[in-house]
Design a protein around this nucleic acid. Structure first.
Lengths: 230, 230
DNA sequence: ACCTGAACACCGTTCAAGT
DNA sequence: ACCTGAACACCGTTCAAGT
């Protein structure tokens, strides 16, 4: 085992040779966490790893592939076993997995945008898809409805979180939910009730669109809709 | 009226002074249409308008504001009156507006990603929101359910189109839908039935996730879910 | 008010060369 | 196989200056 230095270890700088893909992806996620979405760059990752920019191309073909690897890595951080369980619990399984995915994405808001660019590739996306399908089959859907429903759930989860994060600066930790809701309520203050009457009288609800409560509510409605015609 | 030159007019180059915001936004959309999402740049727009890069900052504060203007401009191209109509037709109104929005976004795929970055600002977004709310109130929902439902429909429309476009190169015209479905079916060919049994037997459905038919199906399920508990 | 000129601090990517 | 050195063709943005 390595001698554990008691000195405050320097932060992953220094010329450490022999990288691997996992280190590159981890450095990229750390970079986005520190500097927000626009901090992601091949050159920046190389700098953090103490390596010349083009060394990164040993591990990814281009920036787009790095982004796909980030998506797959974050997806792997959500416990797939949350989708397991008795058939009768299909709904609870889908809900708890969705909430866990949302939590992981909110913890890495700068990377969440990437999920709207190429989410369906990657080994982990395939595994998540199979898990969603299994839950929907357990709900009593036929194969066609389960597959269509799977995509609808995907669209809901990813779209919802992306829009929620779009209103932030993408740098964790995000302000607590009550603060973000309060900021939205303030922004809605100037709505003209003459031209937008319904919007004007529902600003309190709209302020909470980015809440976990709305996320759960929307998911339940989606699941209602998918299973209504069973 | 201006003398109409019969010569094949040169393409918007040349030193035309006195720009305005509309020209800048139009040039930006044209640029994304021609070169895909990564072709969008302040410098590129300036080049197309025959102006120095920093001249653009007379009309937008930064790149992010240009992107918001693009979103608002595209939103304005979808006829809001599609949301008007008899209360009993609330469902048809929502469906035809959604389909029209999808059509506009698919015609400008490189710009569609921007809708996931800051869609709820802008004057046109507000007007669309009021229209969605009116349709949902006509559906018999109370104010709270209508507002929550409005956001769910927004998430669905924008998330759906964004994921669909994520699989393309973002340059119009996109390949026709049957070709895109066939390409997806081919990509699904290698699925391992042992590890992903349900996925493997539903690849034909999954190939069609990006179809207009799935889009309409998903919207109907969302509307079912929203109105189920009325 | 609106534009130019010039600069600063960045990008992604490629190629040849070293080990 | 994996990295460096050096270059190419780009970025967004700022500042001072001109009209």
């Amino acid at each position: 085992m390595p001698a554990s230095s008691s000195s405050p270890r320097p932060r992953a700088r220094g010329p450490r040779r022999r990288l691997d893909l996992a280190q590159v992806v981890a450095a990229a996620i750390a970079r986005v966490d520190a500097g927000g979405p626009e901090a992601l760059s091949i050159r920046g990752v190389a700098l953090d790893l103490g390596v010349m920019p083009n060394a990164i191309y040993t591990y990814v073909a281009d920036r787009a592939e790095l982004e796909r690897e980030i998506v797959d890595a974050l997806l792997s951080r959500v416990d797939l076993r949350l989708l397991d369980g008795p058939a009768a619990d299909w709904r609870a399984r889908l809900v708890r997995y969705s909430l866990a995915l949302r939590t992981v994405l909110l913890a890495h808001p700068g990377a969440a945008v990437l999920f709207m660019s190429a989410p369906m590739t990657g080994a982990h996306a395939l595994a998540v898809g199979e898990g969603l399908l299994a839950a929907l089959v357990d709900a009593g859907l036929d194969d066609t409805a389960a597959s269509r429903g799977e995509y609808l759930v995907f669209v809901y989860m990813l779209g919802s979180v992306a829009l929620e994060i779009a209103e932030t600066d993408g740098r964790p930790p995000l302000p607590p939910e009550p603060a973000r809701i309060a900021a939205r309520r303030a922004a809605f203050a100037g709505i003209d009730a003459a031209t937008h009457p319904i919007t004007a009288r529902t600003t309190d609800v709209a302020a909470g669109w980015i809440s976990g409560e709305q996320f759960a509510w929307g998911l339940e409605r989606v699941l209602d809709g998918i299973t209504a015609a069973r």
